[in-house]
Structure formats: C-alpha cells, structure tokens
C-alpha cells in the first residue's frame, strides 16, 4: 500500500471550508468566528513547527533532547491549563500544580510503556516516545483542566458549606470530599465516553491516521487499544494528583479557605 500525497493546495481547500464556517458565523457571533480563525492559524503554524522539530529530533535520537522536548510540552500544557481556569483570581501555584501533575503521570506512563510494551531499540526511540507522550499529555491536559475548573467553581459556590464542615472539626479532605469527587468525575467522563464509543460511534484518530498512512488495520487497532488504556490511566492519575494538589492550594496553612 502506498500513501497518496497531499499538496499544500489540498490543505488550502480544507482551510477554505473552515473560512466559510467562520464567515457564516460572523454575523451572529463575531467573537466565535474570530476564535475559529485564530485556532486554525495556530493549528497550521504549531504543527508545521513541530514537523521541523520532529525531523531534527528523529535524526539526532538523543535522550536528553527527547526528554527536553517533553518538558517543553509539559510546560506549555501547564500554561494552557492555567489560562483555561475561568473562575476566581489567578493563583501563582496553578501552573505548578497542573504541570507537576501532568509531568508525573504522563512521563511515568510513557516510560513504562516504552520499556515494557513497545521495546524499541533504543527504548527511547523518538518515533514512539514523542507521539506517545504527546497523546498522553493532550488528554491529561483536558482532564486536569476540567477537574481544576470544576474544583474552583464548586469551592466558590459552596464556600459556606465547606466552611460549615470545617467548623464541625472536619479536616480539608473530609470537608471537600463531594467537591473532589465531582471534579474527578467531570474530568474522567470524556475519557470514559470515548472509550465506550470507540469503534461504534467514532473511529479513533490515531488508528484512523495509521490506516490512512497504509498500516495494517489489525495492528493499528492494537496500538489504538493500548493508547486508549494508557490515556485512561494517565488522565486518571494526573487528574487525581491535580485534584489533590489543587484542593490543598485553595486552603491556607491553618486550613481556611482562601478567597477566590
């Protein structure tokens, strides 16, 4: 099987469709059409840039370079989470809470997978390490950002309730149990839903990409299952850590809710 090449003009045609969408939306919601346009430009620029970086990293195959690129990706993800939090004032710690949670969960799971399942030579082969880390981070980012947002919202709305529980002598973990449970649930539902819908309602992107690129469907499906399971684990543990650290962050040293 050989791959049909795609030219820049082909991409232009696809972009034209999105431009029409932005235009149609312009009258009802200028802000939305502006957002669509900016997102499209970002997509093209970021992916073109990463193509150059990947070409270089693939050629070098240097473990420090791969690890370093991973760290840059984590930092960008942490920055993204911080920006997506809409409730209350910006807290200096949010970047660190989210970056640390994503770093731990995605690095540990990625390295574990490379060593025990993929077993490439060398184990950190960028062809596997970078896409794997990228997919883990992307999904963990969504989970962490959903959970931190939800946590902020409920801490703000249910402030008097949480304080009432503190007054009765409960510690911050007892007093925020239901808020943390809700945050975890809302963060993991997209992952659970996409696992449940895979193959029936939707064809997962990675598998589809591999098949488009000429891979054997059976192998592509195996890869997809592995990735899904890793994403579920990575998102789950990352979100768990972020919910824990994010809750702690909203109390001061004497376990009082800080003002949001």
């Amino acid at each position: 099987m050989n791959i049909q090449p795609i030219s820049v003009i082909d991409l232009g045609i696809a972009a034209f469709l999105v431009c029409i969408l932005a235009l149609v939306n312009h009258r009802t919601s200028p802000q939305l059409s502006k957002d669509i346009f900016i997102a499209m430009i970002r997509l093209v620029l970021q992916l073109s840039l990463i193509a150059l970086v990947l070409k270089y990293v693939f050629a070098e195959r240097n473990i420090l370079l791969i690890g370093g690129l991973g760290l840059v990706m984590v930092a960008l993800a942490g920055y993204e989470v911080k920006n997506r939090i809409s409730t209350g004032r910006t807290l200096a710690g949010t970047f660190w809470v989210s970056s640390f949670s994503m770093f731990i969960s995605s690095y540990v799971i990625c390295i574990f997978c490379l060593l025990t399942m993929i077993k490439a030579d060398p184990w950190y082969h960028p062809q596997y390490a970078i896409p794997l880390l990228g997919m883990l981070l992307g999904n963990t980012l969504t989970g962490v950002s959903l959970s931190l947002n939800r946590l902020r919202d409920s801490f703000k709305v249910q402030r008097t309730l949480i304080e009432s529980r503190l007054m009765l002598g409960e510690d911050i973990w007892q007093a925020t149990l239901s808020q943390r449970r809700e945050a975890m649930t809302s963060a993991l539902i997209p992952t659970i839903n996409s696992m449940a819908a895979a193959g029936i309602v939707s064809l997962p992107g990675m598998m589809t990409g591999q098949i488009l690129a000429g891979a054997d469907p059976e192998l592509a499906v195996r890869y997809q299952i592995m990735i899904f399971l890793l994403i579920a684990a990575g998102t789950g543990f990352g979100t768990y850590l972020a919910t824990y650290l994010g809750s702690k962050q909203l109390f001061d040293d004497r376990e009082r809710l800080i003002s949001l």
């Binding site: 503190l166 007054m167 009765l168 002598g169 510690d171 007892q174 004497r254 376990e255």
Partner: peptide, 13 residues
C-alpha cells in the same frame, strides 16, 4: 491541627 482545634472550639453559624 486546625481540625482538632475547631472540634474543641466549635462555631455554630
């Protein structure tokens, strides 16, 4: 610990 203190010195709002 803050929770221990508040259990002993309890505020009823």
């Amino acid at each position: 610990a803050p929770s221990q203190w508040r259990q002993k010195v309890m505020l009823l709002p």
